[in-house]
């Protein structure tokens, strides 16, 4: 019967402790034990009975939902990403502009990398729009 206790503990390990959880665990364990006794009375070996009870218990997902286990909520990071991309591209472009006018003032080339860099905030802008 110790196996059952171990299994129930395992099933419930992700659920945060509360009075409700303890109560349900006790109830589940008690009922599983009764099932095992019942199966043994029908002629099953203890180990078979325990295995059968465990298998038939099923997926604990429903129970988790009822107990209010919070599903990980994906935070909406798109706005932050957009902000980061804007700042990042401004700084990068500023660097190109500086290099351009400081080292080669006769040739205007900073426009080319600027176009390339602008894809970044552009992509982030549309990701942000899609998320809203």
């Amino acid at each position: 019967m110790k196996q059952l206790k171990v299994h129930v503990d395992e099933l419930f390990k992700e659920i945060s402790d509360s009075e409700q959880k303890t109560a349900i665990m006790e109830e589940v364990l008690e009922n599983l034990e009764e099932k095992v006794w019942d199966l043994m009375e029908q002629g099953k070996a203890e180990e078979d009975a325990i295995n059968k009870a465990i298998v038939e218990f099923g997926d604990i997902l429903d129970l988790k939902n009822e107990l209010g286990v919070k599903r990980p909520v994906k935070k909406n990071m798109t706005k932050l990403n957009l902000g980061f991309s804007l700042w990042g591209s401004v700084i990068t472009i500023a660097l190109f502009v500086f290099m351009n006018f400081y080292y080669t003032p006769d040739v205007i080339w900073f426009v080319y990398p600027t176009f390339a860099v602008l894809w970044w905030p552009l992509a982030m802008y549309f990701i942000w729009k899609r998320a809203n």
């Binding site: 109830e27 589940v28 008690e30 599983l32 034990e33 006794w37 129970l63 107990l67």
Partner: peptide
């Protein structure tokens, strides 16, 4: 499935459609 059953108990009890009490002691508890 037992897991489903206990989920239903929880739900029904929360909605006050059923209530629980401790009864006789079986072999387990």
């Amino acid at each position: 499935k037992e897991a489903t059953l206990y989920a239903v108990f929880q739900r029904l009890e929360k909605k006050e459609l059923i209530e629980s009490y401790f009864g006789s002691v079986s072999r387990g508890g």
